[in-house]
Amino acid sequence: MKQNYTVRHGALEGIEAFLAVARHRNFRRAAAQLGVTPPAVSQAVRALEARMGAALFVRTTRSVGLTEPGQRFLDRAGPAFEELVAAGEAVRDIGQRPTGLLRLSVPRAVVPLILEPMIASFCRAYPEIELEIAASDEMVDLAAGGFDAGIRLGQFIAVDMVAVRLTPSFSFVVVGSPDYLKRHGRPERVDDLRNHACLRLRRSNGAIAPWAFVDGNEAIEAMLSGPLIAHDYPTLLGAAMRGVGLAQTPRPIAEAPIAEGKLEPVLDGIAATTPGVFLYHPGKRQVLPKLRAFIDHLKSAA
């Protein structure tokens, strides 16, 4: 059976006044510590005693002492209150300067292209930030997963997110190894791909991604077949370099093997483009200094 739960109004009222009096054994000195008047401290303690249903102090004209209930309350409330104060200071610290754990959800292909070149300089610049990079090609719920931000291709970012551009728009390139193209020929049209081994990507929602092209103003999606299905672009790219088949990947991650002669592009004239790579987060009001520092460092390193 579900139990009703409510936070009692004023449950913590008077505790700071009680602790100050218990520390000084004097209402006037407690008031001076708290920056209030002695009558205000007396009133707060009396209200706390009324809620507790027990006297917490023994008062005489010359001294103030703790009753047995007061001592028991001090033994338990004192450490708990100090922990609350420490917790508040820790939260305030994170909210005011770049510190704490910064968790990012990032596709594997993005790590070597965008993050690796700036990780060392960021960690040196912000030694009080712990940077955690969760490399996964699955789309995650940032809030549910405990992430501060994510990095994804622009077309996959929800409209209610704040997006920060990290790269210009770029094309998707079809690539194959020189040996594969020598053995199987170079496709000249989309229809030619049906005679090739096409390496495909399975998206996080379980669907196999079609290959995308543009013919004039017409967008074309081709559902193809081949010997390999992977969940990330680096795996597809590695298989293409080993001659397993053709792969369609974002051009930035294929540029290095193309420049090294390990891969050759085909069908460049009808390559589809993507808006680019973006960092995204839930909203401007939720940007803590640690995330703001990371965004600014990414921009300066670009």
Rank of each mutant, 00 (worst) to 15 (best):
A77S: 10
G243P: 03
I208N: 05
R200C: 03
G145V: 03
H281W: 11
M241L: 08
I208M: 08
L66T: 07
Y126H: 15
V159L: 14
L181Q: 12
G206C: 07
D75A: 05
A77L: 13
P210L: 06
A22R: 01
M223H: 15
E130Q: 12
A90D: 13
E82F: 09
R194F: 12
L84C: 12
L246A: 02
G78V: 00
L19G: 04
L131A: 11
T67Y: 00
L181H: 09
M52W: 03
S121C: 09
L166S: 04
M139Y: 11
G206H: 13
G100I: 05
S63H: 13
G35N: 06
F18T: 01
V214Q: 09
P282F: 12
R183M: 09
R59E: 15
P234H: 06
N205K: 09
G216Y: 15
A134P: 01
P117N: 10
S177W: 02
L193W: 04
C198Q: 10
Q3M: 09
G238D: 10
K290L: 08
S225Q: 10
N205T: 11
H24L: 04
E130I: 14
T99N: 04
A239G: 05
F57E: 00
P227F: 13
E132F: 09
V21S: 00
A22Q: 02
V164M: 06
R251G: 01
P117A: 03
A219S: 11
M1H: 08
R23Y: 11
K182D: 11
L246G: 01
P234D: 10
A135N: 08
L142W: 02
I270G: 02
A259R: 14
L246F: 07
I295G: 05
P289K: 02
R23M: 02
A240L: 09
A17T: 14
A254Y: 06
L34G: 08
R23L: 10
N205A: 15
